[in-house]
Design a protein around this nucleic acid. Structure first.
Lengths: 207, 207
DNA sequence: ATAATATTGACCAGGTCGGTCTAATTTGTT
DNA sequence: AACAAATTAGACCGACCTGGTCAATATTAT
């Protein structure tokens, strides 16, 4: 719907999108303030309602924007040809990290959407959620070579544990370095540490 | 400070506390509405300001209440004499589950406190946080028998991975059964599943 | 019956809400 | 340079919500 919005300079577009994502992510739809959004975006109040006719239209736009971005910028980047579960997960985690650095508010915003009661979401949005979850699931679990796992553990349980471990590690990392730009972080050291954890997991769960 | 408040019937006290915890946890201090709190607690507006002189006093009361409760009802329940890391963590997780069931809003409320910018917290509160974190840390890591771990993995890394795994499992469980009373959940089955995960961890990380 | 305590909700001034609109500025076209 | 069209800011609107007060009422204890 927002014709005029797409003709803006990318930088201004991005400022508005980010301000809105942040506000909606922090406060939810009802409590989010359009006044706060225009202030953080550095535009006049009128402009927001010039680009988007009302609050709901802005919200819907953001939903589509985020789903698209996550799909193309993260989920589709996962390498389905890697049969080693841990390696595939490593690659996915790194993609997620980069994506998060480039789009800091997208995951938080989508997280809030996912927690919204079903009745408050349009059926279209509900479909988008299901679809994305399915694709993300497949991207992680399809074509995995189970023979790598040691035979005295339940493979499904092992995969759950590995998944929880790596999510925990990512959480821990983003907590530790929150606020800092990814460029200022010693990626070499971080990657090494990550690899060490992965090696530990391989030692523990693989043959 | 709230003299009159402590003379209330426990049930009414609890209603007010829960309503306030929920509101503050959901919206944060500024956005939380005292009107919403009295509505959910089922009391008149005047009473809230009769028990607590103002919003801030209520908030401070809740902070102390929660730290106390978590300390006594959860952290102190952890069995320091159990030298097996996984077993100690199992027991801690079960305590946490029970505590969460009995005090559903406490952890969420404290979680919000922990994420609050330092400048907005009183130094007293900051101290309480540090203190509790230290005790919780000790309760999990003190007097652990490291000799149980296999020798070809870094013990510290293994413990991190186990911790993230179990936090992930707990998260997954509470997501799955959220809303449902703990009594209505098949605890037998749940405990069994939990044990299976723990056994998998032992197979993977222990000698 | 009287005094003390507990409780309510209408009410206050101050502020924020989503959204509108006018007036000004910038840009494009000739 | 002149005019038209598109873009922009922010003052402004009524509706609503805010934390907090207080006079009136109900309940309890003596």
């Amino acid at each position: 719907m927002p014709k005029s919005f797409h003709n803006l300079e990318k930088e201004k577009q991005q400022r508005i999108i980010n301000a809105a994502l942040q506000e909606f992510a922090e406060k939810g739809y009802e409590q989010a303030s359009t006044n706060q959004i225009v202030k953080n975006a550095g535009i006049g109040k009128g402009m927001l309602f010039y680009y988007f006719n009302n609050k709901q239209e802005l919200y819907d736009y953001l939903i589509n924007y985020c789903f698209d971005l996550v799909q193309k910028g993260y989920v589709q980047q996962i390498d389905l040809s890697e049969p080693d579960f841990i390696e595939r997960f490593r690659q996915a985690s790194m993609s997620k990290l980069t994506f998060f650095d480039e789009n800091p508010y997208v995951f938080n915003f989508l997280g809030v959407i996912m927690l919204t009661e079903d009745e408050l979401l349009s059926s279209d949005t509900r479909n988008k959620i299901k679809q994305l979850q399915q694709i993300a699931f497949d991207s992680i679990y399809k074509n995995i070579d189970y023979s790598l796992f040691r035979e005295d553990v339940d493979v499904q349980k092992a995969m759950d544990l590995i998944k929880w471990s790596m999510d925990g590690y990512r959480e821990y990392m983003s907590q530790k370095y929150k606020g800092e730009e990814l460029e200022n972080v010693d990626m070499e050291k971080l990657t090494l540490e990550f690899t060490q954890y992965l090696d530990t997991l391989k030692t523990a769960f693989y043959k």
